[in-house]
């Protein structure tokens, strides 16, 4: 007797919780007729359970994305596995107002939905359950976080003077490229260059003229990049470019083209015309390199070789130059 009362009680408790829980529960048959519609759904949709039970879900809610949602429900019946819909796919499945109509920022409720296969006693899938979660707060804060992060990320990645990547971010990218190339045995090449006799420019025309030359060099560089190349300002007047999927010989063409372009530039500053040149070093990633630092050293030593051989030229790194 006691046992029976307990069972009845606990069923009632379950039912109470099911009614007051802040999660939507809908159960549909294969033909999309609604079998269960809990209080969350009643309150948010304004449609009572009498009005929807045994009716076709899509007739009762014509604004539902029907072809899409039908496909999701069908796949639960066919595959007999749970299926998840995230707010990132569709901000909402049911068009409900947000819970904070006055103080909130979102007009509609962002939803995650889980679809669950429900079985009869013989194990066949006869119904599908839709569990609707309100994720408005999470979604709103993630969207805000994303835009804030994008701004921060952009600020901390770019060099102010040149708008190229700054050294920190560029080196991180080089590290990633180093690991990627090693793993996939792809060939990538690093090009480094610096402005010849830059100290003279500064000393003769002043620091502002020097900045102008650096800006000119980076603009010329940016105009000659492919979409996949990653260029950064490595030091004061030193620049570096990662050329992915590129061999040293191809990279040399790039280097020479850039060198000639820069040779033909005229920088006008305070009524004077300044001409300048650059020296370049080219280093293909080789299997002996253990880390991205060694890759930089290789390109740097080729650059040194160019300087040594008279400047305004490009050299490819070979082992003996080290």
């Amino acid at each position: 007797m006691q046992e029976q009362t307990d069972t009845i009680n606990s069923l009632e408790w379950l039912f109470d919780i099911f009614r007051s829980i802040d999660v939507g529960v809908v159960i549909v048959e294969k033909d999309y007729s609604v079998k269960t519609w809990n209080s969350f759904m009643v309150n948010h949709s304004g449609v009572s359970s009498q009005d929807v039970i045994n009716k076709n879900l899509f007739n009762a809610f014509p604004e539902l994305p029907d072809a899409w949602l039908k496909r999701k429900i069908d796949s639960v019946f066919m595959l007999n596995t749970r299926s998840f819909i995230t707010w990132e796919q569709h901000p909402y499945v049911f068009k409900f107002r947000s819970y904070r109509p006055i103080t909130g920022t979102a007009e509609y409720m962002f939803q995650n939905v889980t679809l669950i296969p429900l079985h009869s006693t013989d194990g066949a899938v006869t119904h599908a359950g839709l569990v609707v979660y309100d994720v408005t707060d999470v979604a709103v804060s993630q969207i805000k976080l994303k835009s804030a992060n994008q701004l921060l990320g952009k600020l901390s990645r770019t060099d102010k003077l040149t708008q190229l990547y700054n050294r920190g971010y560029w080196e991180e990218s080089l590290d990633i490229e180093f690991e990627r190339s090693k793993r996939s045995s792809q060939i990538s090449t690093l090009v480094m260059f610096d402005i010849d006799h830059f100290k003279n420019v500064n000393d003769t025309y002043g620091h502002q003229a020097g900045d102008e030359v650096i800006r000119n060099a980076s603009r010329t560089l940016l105009n000659n990049l492919r979409k996949t190349d990653v260029a950064g300002r490595y030091g004061g007047e030193e620049f570096a470019i990662i050329l992915t999927n590129t061999e040293a010989h191809t990279a040399l063409y790039f280097a020479e083209r850039l060198r000639k372009k820069i040779e033909s530039q005229i920088v006008a500053h305070d009524g004077v015309e300044i001409r300048y040149t650059i020296s370049l070093g080219v280093a293909e990633l080789s299997p002996e390199m253990d880390n991205h630092q060694q890759w930089i050293e290789a390109a740097d030593s080729a650059l040194y070789e160019s300087k040594h051989a008279g400047r305004n030229r490009s050299e490819i790194y070979s082992k003996k130059t080290l």
């Binding site: 796949s75 595959l79 596995t81 749970r82 299926s83 998840f84 819909i85 995230t86 990132e88 796919q89 995650n112 889980t114 979660y133």
Partner: peptide, 30 residues
Amino acid sequence: MDLSNILIGAFLKAISEQLEFDFSMGHPNV
């Protein structure tokens, strides 16, 4: 999402059936 529902869902279900353990799954993160 379709692919992850199929592959992750079916894989974990088959693991849990073989090892006879029940588990809860969180919502997927993209």
